[in-house]
Design a protein around this nucleic acid. Structure first.
Lengths: 258, 258
DNA sequence: ACCTGAACACCGTTCAAGT
DNA sequence: ACCTGAACACCGTTCAAGT
């Protein structure tokens, strides 16, 4: 893991040469988180892992929150950005799904970034794609932002709920609590839930993110032509749109590669 | 606050008479949470507030998580259950909104209950209403559960995000971080977000829960007649449904009152 | 049966000092 | 400029003992 070299002490610089660097701190933090979960990532543990002291860390990051933000940055910067489809509605769905897939790999981050948005600069790429696709679907920029927010709520909720469920599964503290509750339901007071009974568990285990997202997007966007074969007009528009978009993406790729 | 009497020592019972009770623990816990936020609710603080010791609490609740679950129970049990509209779609919206309004009063609970569902028995009333309304809208029970899950993700996400934003506002640690990020955006890489610039802040402050919920529900339910005047057939069905439902609610009211 | 005291194994962060 | 040590003010929970 120690392949990241300690920054060489630049000869012209005064003072004691640094032993720690932000980059090493982030790498080590990420290893701890990947191997043992966010709960184990503490300033003290991180310092111990780096043969240093808690206070040395505070010379490189303001506080623990900044450390977590750096972790998100690192994650988003290294994630592969999928090539998105041309059709704006499909593009919107693909961008949201890509965002969700990225965060599924690091559900511990959700607590950090629920703040408002994916506020790490690199992560804003996903936001941009969703908003842009929504505008291409016919929404005004303002409507597109509102649509993005709904999608973000839905996505953040799915992540938080699934992360909590996974945590619970790992800890398997009273693994039958839900079953117990659902077994004791009063069919007179809660007929639907009582009738579902044990099936609730299976249904809750299903991955319904994609279906729910499609429903949400259907409701958010103006009605779209389904199944209707494209006319010449449509075709012409689509081709122009595609070219515009490809230009934009090429530009982005070049910038992302620097 | 000490209006809840210490349980009188039942004469027949052996052993030392209890000084603490679950009820008093919950009342005190809720006062702390209401006045100073969940972060301040610790076993030690709670014990101090009750002129007791941390360990005395462990005789009445298994651990801190059980304490938080008791708090949710308490909250849901005392919340007024709104009379829901008759039209199933409106009923679904109203039930989800009522659930959200309840939780908005105690956003600190969201972290606890994201587990899977509102797993406190009293809170399941809201789940029942949403699932039942979804079935009345024409979904199968399975589809209704999936629809509920999407709505719960959306609702939980909204709560988590807004709670985090509020926390941040209260702490107002670097209040301009988002503004700084949005000011530094590269318009070539993120044209939509850069163009929105400062408007992002205002748009994010809007309460768009209701609009997003309607969109989601539109997408989840089979298409519904909008604006079309009801036929005689519809009318007859609706009247029957209304009667069924009123029966059911009356039964619930009686049971809730016990 | 119910409560207490002391202890264990932790936290994030500040402050004053060292090299 | 960068790092250290000791300290502050906390956590949740366990264990053994007291009434």
């Amino acid at each position: 893991m120690g392949r990241m070299p300690t920054p060489s002490p630049r000869p012209g610089r005064p003072g004691r040469p640094p032993r720690l660097s932000r980059a090493e701190i982030v790498t080590t933090a990420r290893r701890i988180v990947d191997e043992e979960g966010v709960a184990k990532l503490t300033m003290r543990r991180l310092a111990r892992e780096m043969d240093s002291t808690p206070m040395a860390l505070y010379h490189h990051v303001r506080d623990k929150e900044e450390l977590l933000l750096l972790l998100l940055e690192d994650f988003a910067a290294h994630a592969a950005r999928p090539r998105l489809p041309d059709d704006p509605r499909e593009r919107l769905l693909a961008a949201a799904t890509a965002m969700r897939d990225l965060l599924t790999q690091c559900p511990w981050l959700v607590e950090v970034l629920t703040a408002d948005d994916l506020l790490a600069p690199s992560a804003l790429w996903y936001v941009e794609q969703v908003v842009d696709a929504a505008v291409d679907c016919g929404l005004t920029p303002e409507q597109a932002v509102r649509a993005y927010r709904s999608i973000w709520y839905y996505t953040a909720g799915e992540l938080v709920v699934r992360a909590a469920a996974a945590r619970r599964r790992a800890a398997d503290a009273r693994p039958t609590y839900r079953e117990r509750v659902f077994a004791d339901l009063d069919p007179a007071a809660l007929p639907r839930l009582a009738a579902l009974g044990p099936r609730w568990g299976e249904l809750t285990a299903e991955d319904t993110y994609a279906a729910g997202l499609r429903a949400l997007v259907d409701g958010l966007l103006p009605p779209h032509r389904t199944g209707a074969p494209p006319t010449d007009m449509d075709d012409r528009h689509d081709r122009q749109d595609r070219e515009d978009r490809r230009d934009r993406e090429d530009r982005q790729d070049r910038e992302a590669g620097e």
